[in-house]
Amino acid sequence: MAKGRELIGRIKTTENTRKITRTMEMVAASKMKRASDRVTAARPYAKALSEVISSLYNEDLAERFPLLRQLTSEKRAAVVLLTANRGLCGGFNANLIKEARHTVAELEARGVQVDLHVVGRKGIGYFRYVGRDMASQRTDITDKPTAADAASLVDTLMADFISGAIDAVYVVHSQFHSVLSAPPHTDRVLPVSAPARSGAGRDYLLYPSADAILTELLPSYVRNAVYRALVETAAAEQAARRTAMKSATDNAGDMLHLLRRTYNRARQANITQEIAEIVGGAAALQG
């Protein structure tokens, strides 16, 4: 029964693999829950910030703030790509990398010089493999990104933007709409496009002045845009991993089913054959 032994081995390995994928699925599910809670928790701040900025914003002010400076032509831009540090999450990283390549190609076609900043081991690994120079690489952002992570990521870019060294900053990240839908997306965080004014503006008492308030808030707004990209990407990663591991577990189940049936069929065939041999032998002796 050589075939039977082999099948038993395969059944065992499939069972073990299924155990691992099932555990990963459950871990990702619980991490995803917490990550999507963080996405929700980040909303009130973003809402408050964009409401106030839109109520203070007007075209005259835009001229005076470097962060609002709209450009007629871009010469040099920074693209920040957010990817995961770990794999086994389906097409998640591949989709983000594809989106980033798309964005970079589009910018370069317009004659823009692109600095590529990559976050996450998977993205770094890819661009190192294709031999593209990266302006910066970071792997220290965990699956619980903080506002401080966002600040450290974007503050240098903001300084470069103000000094005029770069003309735009794009962030490639995942939008976390829901568990099933988290498409990759490119957002332009700099120059800031002022949020659309919602409703009639109120007459506020402004201390010290509209200018001073905007000076304070615009950097916060940019940092918050990056923070949101980070938390959404983290949540999307866990969602993608959960989905991938769920289908891996399901597939392992199907495979086990098939293997067990093949094994039992072989076992039964073997027994039938043995009986036939015994009966045949007995008949020969009697004959």
Binding site: Y207, P208, A212
Partner: peptide, 19 residues
């Protein structure tokens, strides 16, 4: 704690934004 000292807010305060 506003930028230039503390600011107290009571009921029916005028609309205000301060750093």
């Amino acid at each position: 704690p506003a930028f230039d000292g503390e600011v107290g807010i009571l009921l029916n305060h005028a609309p205000m934004i301060t750093v």
